[in-house]
């Protein structure tokens, strides 16, 4: 079943077409890499898929709702995590969980149970009342991802989730992502780092507002006769 389904999704800003009639589907439980060069239209496309920006034309269904007609329903069913902004550094771990739980309309009793479960899973019980700003980057990312899953969204958008962390922490993070996909959560990953792209089930490549290629990393490497995704990216983006 498709969790994201777009049909000729388009967005223009004046004479400039940032997203040009893109049509693609993402399956439930899939780890989907959404790639493209700077200025290719990724951010605009993501804003439409998360209900933050109305399309100029075309259609997109996310988690069963139309992003143009029912953006609020879409927002309730998605999670979002970015390296740049995810948690409040000057709030404690517990406070952050409570804040995001509240924003997504969870009941206080639910928040309490979920907080306990989350802290246990990440082995952060002893640090629950420490400020998030004091945590190492890798822990912040694991926590941010877990908080993005708190309201049990059907799809989570991840923006460069593991850039800047050491290779071991990156693995631990990807295991959390695999685990989420294993229970049916869909993960949409945007990144500039082709290392992250290699972990995705399928990836799409945007060039000048269009989706130029969409396949498994393996098939793309064969099709473009490339030894890694970096080379695939360069071959597609350079035309």
């Amino acid at each position: 079943m498709s969790i994201i389904s777009t049909e000729k999704l388009t967005r223009s800003f004046g004479a400039f077409t940032a997203v040009n009639a893109i049509t693609f589907d993402v399956k439930e439980g899939e780890i989907f890499g959404f790639l493209g060069a700077n200025g290719a239209g990724k951010t605009t496309a993501l804003k439409m898929l998360t209900g933050l920006l109305a399309p100029t034309s075309g259609k997109a269904m996310v988690a069963g709702y139309d992003v143009w007609r029912e953006p609020e329903q879409v927002k309730r069913r998605i999670g979002y995590m970015s390296q740049r902004f995810s948690l409040y550094e000057d709030l404690t771990i517990r406070e952050n969980i409570r804040l995001f739980g509240g924003i997504y309309g969870l009941r206080l009793a639910d928040i309490k149970t979920k907080t306990a479960r989350l802290l246990e899973k990440l082995a952060l019980e002893a640090d629950a009342d420490k400020l998030v700003g004091a945590l190492p980057l890798g822990w912040k990312q694991k926590l941010a991802f877990s908080v993005a899953l708190l309201h049990e969204p059907r799809i989570v958008f991840l923006d460069e989730p593991t850039s800047g962390v050491d290779p071991l922490t990156r693995r631990q993070f990807w295991e959390l992502i695999y685990e989420a996909a294993h229970i049916g959560v869909t993960l949409m990953v945007t990144t500039h780092f082709m290392e992250e792209a290699e972990y995705c089930g399928r990836v799409s490549m945007m060039v000048d507002g269009r989706i130029e290629a969409l396949d498994t990393p393996r098939n793309l490497k064969t099709q473009y006769d490339a030894k890694n995704m970096d080379e695939v990216f360069r071959k597609i983006a350079r035309g």
Partner: peptide
Amino acid sequence: GTGVDPVSRQ
């Protein structure tokens, strides 16, 4: 290399 795409990075 941080914040730029693979083409610019190369």
